[in-house]
Amino acid sequence: MQTILWNREEVLPRAKHLYESRIRSKIDLEENVGKMVIIDIETGDYKVDENGLHAADYLSAKHPNARLLHLRTGYKLAASLGSVIERFYK
């Protein structure tokens, strides 16, 4: 699979769309509050875990060059990519 280069302006809207359209309804459960959800923004694959590093390792093993975005579930979501921090909701 060819790696897609995403710029900052493309990453967050893509992640928000994936989260809202495919992921939120599956993971928005009481037992997931406070856990991390890691999203591969190219494939839409995701993993929920209490430890974001474990979830990221899982997705990285499936797709070694994945662009991963981290979100904490159950709260107003803040997305981080490297040192970039943006809020989905205000």
Rank of each mutant, 00 (worst) to 15 (best):
I38Y: 02
H63M: 05
A56V: 05
A55N: 05
E30I: 08
E30W: 10
V48Q: 13
L53P: 01
L29N: 02
N65P: 06
D57C: 04
N65R: 15
A61H: 07
H63I: 08
E42V: 12
S60E: 08
L29R: 12
A55E: 03
V33E: 11
G52T: 04
D40I: 05
N51M: 15
E42D: 12
S60P: 00
L29C: 02
K47V: 07
D49C: 09
P64Q: 13
L59H: 00
L59I: 01
E31I: 02
D45A: 07
V48W: 12
G34V: 06
D45S: 03
G34P: 07
D49K: 11
G44D: 10
A56L: 09
E30Q: 13
E42Y: 07
G44C: 09
V33Y: 11
E50Q: 15
P64F: 09
K35P: 13
Y58T: 01
Y58S: 00
E42A: 12
H63D: 03
V48P: 06
K47C: 04
D45Q: 13
E50I: 11
V33K: 15
D49Q: 07
T43G: 01
P64T: 15
G44W: 14
I41L: 13
E30V: 11
G44K: 11
I41F: 10
A61P: 02
I41K: 08
I38W: 02
Y58G: 00
I41M: 12
N32W: 14
Y58Q: 00
A55Q: 09
G34D: 04
K47H: 08
A61G: 03
E31L: 02
K62M: 05
V37R: 11
I41G: 03
D45H: 09
A61Q: 15
I38C: 05
E42K: 08
L29I: 01
E50A: 14
